[in-house]
Design a protein around this nucleic acid. Structure first.
Lengths: 205, 205
DNA sequence: ACAGGCGGCTAATTCGAATTAGCCAAAGTA
DNA sequence: TACTTTGGCTAATTCGAATTAGCCGCCTGT
């Protein structure tokens, strides 16, 4: 990988572990395997590295959103899929989301960095809320809404149902970020959560 | 208030807004109304101020835990209270917890500070998990468990039921910490959540 | 009255971290 | 070939923030 990208990568790792202010330009350089002054051949200053990370995230996000939309409209037409939503599939959905967010290297680091930096500016707070509050709720509402329309879940308030699905996942996710040793416990709880969710919302009225 | 305490108070405010590393000793001194070097008459160094905040929290916590235990054992004997747990009372419980944690000046600032600092040490991570994960779950499990025993809520897994009650509250709480403007929305969602929770777990089998 | 300590201040010190200056070799390119 | 860009390095600079030195007035107890 070329140096310019490696800098972003190593910087993100460090920022996610210690926060922007506790990372020295020299730390980043060390990890990349160059000396601190050489960093300035690639970025104007330390802040520019941080900004570039945010920019990169915006790009990644834009791409992801695009593919999501495509899936979304495809899925809307094809409502057959949702007619046999079983407990197993709900479990798979929840686990997949949880494990992807938890372990995907980029997601994990970016989320932890944002957690640390979220109070430093409105912009960062907005990004956090978008990525970990509003977008997941919107996406999962769409999904669970389809399942409900197909008659496999029952509610008169899809948004609250989605909150009941997602909030425990978020809760367990932030717990594992803080304390990775609790992942097994979290996975167990996640499964129990989704089974119970399915019992609560899935049974025929 | 004497200076020594005012220092802790103002430091906590600043740490909760910007994080330890972004706060200068001079900032704290300014707010207290003294010069930076005078701070050293009260604390050995900047880190000692942070540690004193943690110590103070431990003390407060110990007291609170004590009073909780007393209430707990009192309540255990007196199970009559839980026999007429209505939707209104559940709403009151949830709102009370949410608003207290959200607005209580000490809680709010301490929680935000921990949010920022949680990845810097195992100790801080443990404190966070204890205060905002394990203790609330344990306490509310105890409470909801009583209500279930009194026959007003139905579940075969109190812990998951408690997770379903608490996780959305936690989710909304962290959202409001990040973006206080969303509090009205959060309060509305909170009410809907609890009403739905009551419908899901409260109805007779 | 006065000795001591508390808590404030200004001025000085230290020190670490970001950044800049200026050199150089390799690689590309007219 | 000779010129330029690129990206690395060491040494120097700058600067800001934590901390220390040393002074002083005030209260308190004798």
């Amino acid at each position: 990988m070329d140096t310019k990208k490696r800098i972003l990568d190593e910087a993100l790792t460090l920022f996610s572990e210690k926060g922007y202010a506790n990372v020295f330009v020299g730390d980043i350089a060390d990890r990349v395997g160059i000396k601190a002054p050489s960093l300035y051949k690639h970025y104007k200053n330390k802040r520019a590295i941080f900004d570039a990370i945010i920019d990169e995230m915006n790009q990644r996000f834009a791409e992801q959103a695009k593919s999501m939309n495509i899936n979304g409209t495809d899925a809307q037409k094809d409502s057959e899929i949702y007619k046999n939503m079983s407990e197993e599939k709900l479990l798979a959905l929840g686990r997949q989301f949880f494990l992807y967010y938890l372990h995907d290297d980029y997601n994990k680091r970016f989320r932890k960095m944002l957690t640390i930096e979220q109070f430093n500016s409105k912009d960062l707070a907005d990004i956090y809320s978008k990525l970990y509050v509003d977008d997941p709720l919107a996406y999962q509402s769409m999904l669970l809404g389809m399942v409900a329309q197909a008659g496999m879940l029952h509610t008169d308030n899809v948004n609250i149902m989605t909150l009941h699905f997602y909030a425990p996942i978020y809760f367990l996710l932030t717990m594992c970020d803080r304390d990775p040793e609790r992942e097994p416990e979290a996975l167990k709880t996640l499964d129990e959560h989704i089974k119970q969710f399915n019992r609560l919302y899935g049974r025929t009225k």
